[in-house]
Design a protein around this nucleic acid. Structure first.
Lengths: 153, 153
DNA sequence: TAAATATCTAGTAAAACTATAGGGTTATGT
DNA sequence: ACATAACCCTATAGTTTTACTAGATATTTA
């Protein structure tokens, strides 16, 4: 029941963009440096985020990424679902592509997983990017923590 | 954010034991057959469940497993935590062995993960084995679904 | 004693995860 | 023009996890 680095890094990148976007588009390598992430890996995470409309990109010099819509209209759930796939503890209660099994009808555990799925989505959708971006302004002086061991969250 | 087969199969096995225990200890191969599971694999799942006191075993002929305590005092969370480890979306908010990172103090995403962790535990602890065991009595006639593809839950 | 059952210790093939790397093209501001 | 930066495609390698399988031993009841 763990998130992968995709969801964790992706959310941090989105918060970073939200915090910095008043100063214009944010380049991948800027986010990567500030968040101690591989820019090559981050690039891969931004592709689905863009396809989902959560970010827009601007090419060329001074280009980079901006939010696809207002930070108050992007939830953590939106981001996690794009990067990790549908939030569901088991595939048989997956809302997008329900992989039901034969015992589904008289499955006793199914209602637990359904309830858990719904609650997880509710919690993740209760936080907007705006909530998180305001929570903490970027580190003063742009202090960069480049410790590779510092990526548990 | 998926459960592994350990948690899924383990819970089903526990429900099975709860439903059948009036007729005495339930043997591994009986559970395995009824739930379409590998008895060799199930055997491995029962070891930690026994160590945690959730089941007791009786060796020898007519032996098998019984619940370690009343079904009303065993929650789904108890079982899942034993089989999957602490329920936490990221390691840095793991309650047993918190693997904190340097940015923990000014980590914006951390509060989301903490809240998600707590909610997940609450949901899973809100269901007892008794709830599930009563929900559906075992299939009449002991119908066995031996389809290997039937183990999504 | 014989059959039934749990228990212990390993091994293992396949998949997923977490990146890293190469080798570009296209678009844009200055 | 030129530097910057996104965009695109592919590959791959190391590690960890998953989901079992296998063989042997120990214990208990009938």
């Amino acid at each position: 029941m763990k998130l992968s680095t995709k969801g964790r890094y992706g959310l941090r990148a989105m918060v970073d963009i939200a915090q910095q976007q008043d100063a214009g588009p944010v380049a991948i390598h800027t986010i990567a440096q500030r968040q101690s992430l591989s820019s090559r890996y981050l690039e891969q995470l931004l592709i689905p985020l863009k396809q989902a409309g959560l970010v827009k990109s601007l090419r060329g010099a001074q280009g980079g990424y901006v939010l696809g819509r207002s930070a108050v209209k992007i939830t953590v759930g939106d981001i996690i679902r794009v990067l990790e796939g549908p939030i569901a503890p088991v595939d048989c209660v997956n809302e997008i592509n329900p992989d039901e099994c034969m015992r589904a009808e008289h499955c006793v555990t199914r209602k637990v997983w359904t309830r858990l799925r719904d609650t997880m989505n509710e919690v993740l959708d209760s936080y907007t990017l705006e909530d998180l971006a305001q929570e903490s302004m970027p580190l003063a002086g742009g202090a960069i923590i480049d410790d590779d061991l510092d990526n548990k969250c």
